[in-house]
C-alpha cells in the first residue's frame, strides 16, 4: 500500500507540473499580454513600462519558474482589475464554490446510487425505465437552460427560492440541483451496470449459498464491488463540477471562484484566471489521487499495482 501510494503521489506531482506549464502558456495564447493590459490607447512607452512592471521582459522560462515558485507558496501576484492579491480574492470566493461542489456531489450520489441499485435489482421494470429516462434527460439537457427553467419555476411562478446571490443556504438549493443533476445519470448508470455485473458473479452465488439474507448479499457482497468504478468517476465528476460551477455560478450570480473566473476572463485579468485555473486543476489532481487511494482500500487487488 505504501509503494502504491508513493507511485500515485509521484504521478500526481508530474501531472501538476505539466498542467501548470499549460496554464502558464495560456497567457501567451491570446497575443502579447502587456499590449492587452495596456489598453487600446497606450503608446510604446506604456507597454514597455507594463512589461517591466509585470516581468514580461524576462525570458519565458524565468517567468514560468518565478510564477510557479510563487504559486506553490500561495502567491499568485496582483489582480489587474481588483488591485489586490489574487490569493485573497480566491480565499474569499473559494468557500462558496466548495460548498456548491460538495452539496451537488452529495445530491448526485444520494439520488444516483439508490436509483442505480433499484434499476439493477428490478432490471427492465418500470423503475429501470424511469431511471433510464431520467438519465437521458439529464445528459441531454444543457445545464444553463435547466438552471433558467428552475429559476422560472421556483423563483418566479412559485417564488419559494431566491434566483441569485449567495447569502444563505437557500441560495444554494437551485444551483445544487442543477449541478448535481448533471452528474447524476453517469453515477446511476455506472452503479446499475456494475451491480448487474456483480450480481451475476460467482461470489454472489457463494454468498447466497451461505444462506445470507438478500440485504446482506446486496450491501455487503455486491455493492462494495459494484461501487469501485463509481468512486473513480466521483473524483472525475467533482472536477467537472468545479468547471461547471463557472457557468452555474454565473447564472445564479453566486460569488464563488467559478464566477470569479468568468469575471476575470471577460476583464482580461490574467493573474486571476491563471490562479483559478491552476487551483481547479490541482484540486482535480488531488481528488484523483484520493480516489486512487480510496479505490485501493475498497479493492485489495490493486494495492500491489
Amino acid at each position: 500500500m505504501l509503494v502504491y501510494t508513493a507511485k500515485r503521489l509521484l504521478l500526481a506531482i508530474l501531472v501538476s507540473l505539466t498542467v501548470s506549464a499549460l496554464v502558464f502558456s495560456l497567457l501567451y495564447l491570446s497575443g502579447d499580454p502587456a499590449t492587452a493590459l495596456a489598453g487600446e490607447r497606450a503608446n510604446e512607452a506604456d507597454i514597455q513600462a507594463i512589461k517591466a512592471a509585470y516581468g514580461f521582459d524576462q525570458p519565458v522560462y524565468v517567468q514560468y519558474f518565478k510564477w510557479l515558485g510563487g504559486a506553490v507558496q500561495g502567491e499568485f501576484g496582483q489582480s489587474v482589475y481588483f488591485r489586490m492579491p489574487v490569493i485573497d480574492l480566491i480565499v474569499e470566493r473559494l468557500p462558496v464554490t466548495m460548498m456548491l461542489g460538495v452539496s451537488a456531489m452529495i445530491f448526485a450520489l444520494v439520488l444516483a446510487i439508490p436509483l442505480g441499485v433499484l434499476a439493477a435489482m428490478y432490471q427492465n421494470s418500470l423503475i429501470d425505465r424511469a431511471a433510464l429516462l431520467l438519465a437521458v434527460v439529464g445528459q441531454a439537457m444543457p445545464s444553463f437552460w435547466f438552471a433558467l427553467m428552475l429559476i422560472v419555476v421556483f423563483a418566479y411562478w412559485v417564488p419559494i427560492l431566491p434566483a441569485s446571490g449567495s447569502d444563505s443556504w437557500e441560495h444554494f438549493v437551485l444551483p445544487t440541483i442543477v449541478l448535481g443533476y448533471y452528474a447524476t445519470p453517469a453515477f446511476m448508470r455506472l452503479t446499475r451496470t456494475g451491480l448487474l455485473d456483480v450480481l451475476s458473479s460467482d461470489y454472489v452465488r457463494t454468498a447466497r449459498a451461505k444462506g445470507l439474507s438478500p440485504a446482506m448479499v446486496l450491501f455487503k457482497h455486491a455493492l462494495r464491488n459494484a461501487i469501485i468504478p463509481v468512486v473513480s468517476l466521483a473524483a472525475v465528476q467533482f472536477g467537472f463540477m468545479l468547471t461547471g460551477s463557472i457557468i452555474i455560478e454565473t447564472v445564479f450570480a453566486l460569488h464563488g471562484a467559478g464566477f470569479l473566473a468568468w469575471e476575470s476572463i471577460s476583464r482580461s485579468d490574467f493573474p486571476t484566471v491563471q490562479a483559478v485555473l491552476l487551483l481547479f486543476s490541482w484540486f482535480y489532481i488531488i481528488l484523483t489521487f484520493l480516489a486512487d487511494l480510496l479505490n485501493a482500500w475498497l479493492n485489495p487487488r490493486i494495492r500491489v499495482a
Binding site: 461470489y203 452465488r205 457463494t206 455487503k220 457482497h221 479493492n299 487487488r301
Partner: peptide
C-alpha cells in the same frame, strides 16, 4: 462450486 478463482469475494 466449480470456479474457485471467482467464487470468493475479492473485497473481503
Amino acid at each position: 462450486f466449480q470456479e474457485p478463482m471467482t467464487s470468493l469475494n475479492p473485497a473481503y
